[in-house]
Simulated assay, not measured.
Amino acid sequence: MRKRIKRHYRIARYVFYRETILEPIDHLWTFVGTFIAIASIGLLQQAGFTQQDSIFLIGSFGASCVLLFGATNSPLAQPRNLIGGHLLASLIGVAIHKLIPDQVWLASALAVSLSIVCMQITKTMHPPAGATALIANIGSEKIKNLGFGYTLTPVMTGVAILFVTALIINNIPSGRSYGVRSLARLKIAVKRRKGLNSLSSDKT
């Protein structure tokens, strides 16, 4: 038991250590990426969506920026998680609100808990998406009145801006990479599959 605790402690310490190894230039890229992402969403809202009562800048986008630009290598920040997590959470959040419109406490609890379970099942865990599901139930009346339009605007439109910004900014400095690891894994999987196919053909 003690060995297991010590092992988990060493792993946790190593992960924490790796996450906090930052060069001073990393702080600049974190600032630049976050500023551009949030400013772009805000400007888009100001330019064409002012009549929608400032719904474009939902709180979960700020939390997503923490992962995308502050913990770029985290599995929870990867494109699949960012896009899939917010998509699932927004759909579930709206669906629950439509089913239980008058019980905010119950709708909120169901929306968040179901979103987390669905993200676990689909391997799209993205913590800020929990807030996306919650906002669908506790947001302003204008947000609630959007219905499933909430998924398109502001959620997926904002997510697209976050994703493109992260893809550009995080791949400029040599010490960062975003989305690249996913492509590398895909290439490795394809090579392995080809290798297995060639082995099976040789056996036959």
Rank of each mutant, 00 (worst) to 15 (best):
R13E: 01
F31E: 09
I25F: 05
A37W: 01
L44P: 03
E19F: 11
F16H: 02
Y17V: 06
I41L: 07
E19V: 15
S40P: 02
I21N: 08
D26A: 15
L28Q: 06
T30E: 04
R10P: 06
A39K: 12
L43I: 05
L22D: 01
L43R: 03
H27N: 00
V15G: 08
F31W: 02
T34E: 06
I36V: 15
A12Q: 03
Y17N: 03
I38Y: 08
I38W: 09
R18W: 09
R18H: 12
T20P: 01
L22N: 08
G33H: 09
E19D: 05
D26W: 04
F31I: 05
L28A: 02
I41Q: 06
Y14E: 14
A37F: 00
I38L: 14
R18D: 13
W29R: 13
I11K: 11
T20W: 00
R10F: 07
I38V: 06
I38P: 09
I41N: 09
V15K: 12
Q45T: 07
A37C: 04
D26K: 14
Q46M: 06
E19M: 15
I38E: 09
D26N: 15
V15T: 11
F31A: 12
R13F: 05
G33R: 14
V32D: 05
G42V: 00
Q46D: 10
P24N: 07
T34S: 12
L44K: 05
I11T: 13
A47D: 04
W29P: 12
Y14T: 14
S40Q: 06
T20I: 04
D26V: 08
Q45V: 07
E23V: 07
I21W: 01
I36G: 14
I21H: 04
R18N: 12
A12Y: 00
R18T: 15
G42N: 12
R10Y: 08
V15Q: 09
R13G: 10
L43M: 04
E23S: 06
